[in-house]
């Protein structure tokens, strides 16, 4: 039997309507997955905000380190050839 009485934290992700991605909308405490899902429904969709819910235990999320932000993300800065605006085409075909 568990010693801890405080319920673990869950992160809640909502799909606001069919066709859109799930998006993080908040968190809550719940003792287990089934109740986490039910409570997420009651807490985060009172105004029809969602058509689908994911709940994930917060301690299961692997996150990037803010201190490593520069090493992790800055190298993408100079890859300008990945963007369509890098290529100047004649007007006639510029809709490509």
């Amino acid at each position: 039997m568990s010693e801890r009485k405080d319920w673990p934290l869950w992160e809640v992700f909502l799909r606001s309507k069919q066709g859109l991605d799930h998006k993080h909308c908040g968190s809550l405490h719940a003792p287990d997955g089934q109740l986490a899902l039910q409570l997420a429904r009651d807490v985060y969709t009172r105004r029809q905000e969602g058509v689908s819910i994911w709940v994930v235990r917060a301690d299961q999320i692997i996150a990037s380190d803010p201190a490593e932000k520069a090493a992790f993300f800055d190298p993408m800065q100079d890859k300008i050839y990945r963007h369509p605006t890098f290529y100047e085409l004649p007007d006639e075909v510029n809709h490509l």
Binding site: M1, S2, K5, W7, P31, D32, G33, L35, L37, S52
Partner: peptide, 23 residues
């Protein structure tokens, strides 16, 4: 509410249910 919270934690410890699939 303390006994309620404790009961739910105890139940979760007894039944480590496989997470319900998302999506």
């Amino acid at each position: 509410g303390e006994w309620v919270r404790a009961a739910a934690s105890a139940y979760a410890a007894k039944h480590p249910a496989p997470a319900r699939a998302a999506a």
